[in-house]
Computed example of a mutant assay.
Amino acid sequence: MSDSADDGLVPGTDIPFESLPKVSLHDHLDGGLRPATIIELADEIGFELPATDADDLGDWFEESADSGSLPDYLATFDVTLGVMQTREGLTRVAREFVQDLAADGVVYGEVRWAPEQHLQRGLTLDEVVEAVQAGLEQGVDDVHAEGQTIRVGQLITAMRHAGRGLEIAELAVRHRDRGAVGFDIAGAELGFPPANQLAAFDYLAHHLFPTTVHAGEADGLDSIRGALFHGRALRLGHGVRLAEDVTIERQDDDNTYVSLGVLAQWVKDREIALELSPSSNLQTGAIAQWGDELVDHPFDLLYQLGFRVTVNPDNRLMSNTTISRELALLTETFAYDLDDLETFQLNAAAASFLPLEDREDLADAISDAFDEL
């Protein structure tokens, strides 16, 4: 990283990345725990950890997740899920999650998680959703007490391999007025297409409940097609492999000439947001066909072509990251400026699952804050 990025400042300014107002669309609750909290919760329930020092445990998560494989990356969640099986554990994790978002400058966040993974100690699906909502609300109160502003919502997620999609979709709709703002499917993408959850997506469409679908991360264009057709996705979780439908025809010293396939053109024309997570995409090998460094990530290509790109951490613990760090890495790699950083946040605000008027208010607040920098 450059000196400016190392200092946490937007290059050429004295503005910390953390001070920029941000919108977080792709951030997993079970991927954002504090290592110290994991240790305390594990001690309370007798759960064995790979390390009992907070720094060592944080290093273990990052090193284990940096595997080049999505299934191996997902294996690290056995630990975080292990300490998120009680009402008290879920509420504490959710509360701290909001506090940490606010510390990174997030003013609106959608928190995704899979309730079906938190039933090992006898809680029901509704009880775990209520426990998380209680923590989120406590976190919001904490942030407001510090004089900051934040708003959060739950993205209720079904695990695509587990076959409970309809049940989880019903759960999401049941809680739509109590914190749930959208639905997602996650987990092993390859071999578990959105079509497998068609009953869930039909139910959600019938009840006019918005969806975002993990697609174009561990699988390619067919997965994205399935997310759009079967899942009726309004956003693509990652979606980075949409770049497979972009053909570079020729390049010269000043320009790159490309053509878009039908799928890429559709996503662009309809401004379907891509929930890109650069560090995570490197760790899981999602961009392996283009390279193994951030400069190889098709983020900038998609941005320059006019796609609605957004910047997300995915899993802050596993990637040892925040949105501020992702913005710093992208800025250092692709020479972005404040206007670009504002565009990423406005893209995310427009793609959020807030009501239209609230999205417009959020965009205005972001623009006003950037104007004051």
Score class of each variant (00 low, 15 high):
residue 1 M to G: 13
residue 16 P to E: 02
residue 25 L to P: 01
residue 25 L to F: 01
residue 39 I to N: 07
residue 50 P to Q: 12
residue 55 D to P: 03
residue 55 D to N: 13
residue 77 F to K: 04
residue 86 T to H: 11
residue 105 G to M: 07
residue 108 Y to Q: 09
residue 108 Y to R: 11
residue 120 Q to V: 07
residue 120 Q to H: 13
residue 120 Q to T: 09
residue 126 D to L: 02
residue 126 D to S: 14
residue 144 H to P: 00
residue 146 E to N: 11
residue 147 G to V: 07
residue 153 G to Q: 02
residue 153 G to K: 01
residue 154 Q to Y: 03
residue 156 I to C: 09
residue 160 R to N: 04
residue 165 G to V: 00
residue 167 E to Q: 15
residue 168 I to A: 03
residue 190 L to Y: 11
residue 192 F to R: 00
residue 194 P to C: 03
residue 201 F to A: 00
residue 202 D to K: 08
residue 205 A to E: 10
residue 208 L to I: 04
residue 209 F to Q: 01
residue 213 V to P: 12
residue 228 L to R: 02
residue 230 H to W: 14
residue 233 A to P: 12
residue 237 G to P: 03
residue 244 E to Q: 15
residue 252 D to W: 09
residue 253 D to W: 11
residue 260 L to E: 14
residue 260 L to M: 15
residue 277 S to C: 15
residue 282 L to D: 06
residue 286 A to W: 11
residue 286 A to G: 07
residue 293 E to N: 08
residue 293 E to P: 03
residue 294 L to H: 07
residue 294 L to A: 08
residue 295 V to H: 05
residue 299 F to L: 08
residue 310 T to Q: 05
residue 314 D to G: 10
residue 319 S to R: 07
residue 319 S to V: 10
residue 335 A to K: 08
residue 339 D to A: 15
residue 340 D to H: 14
residue 349 A to R: 01
residue 352 S to I: 06
residue 354 L to S: 00
residue 356 L to T: 15
residue 358 D to Q: 15
residue 359 R to V: 02
residue 360 E to F: 02
residue 363 A to S: 15
residue 366 I to H: 02
residue 371 D to E: 13
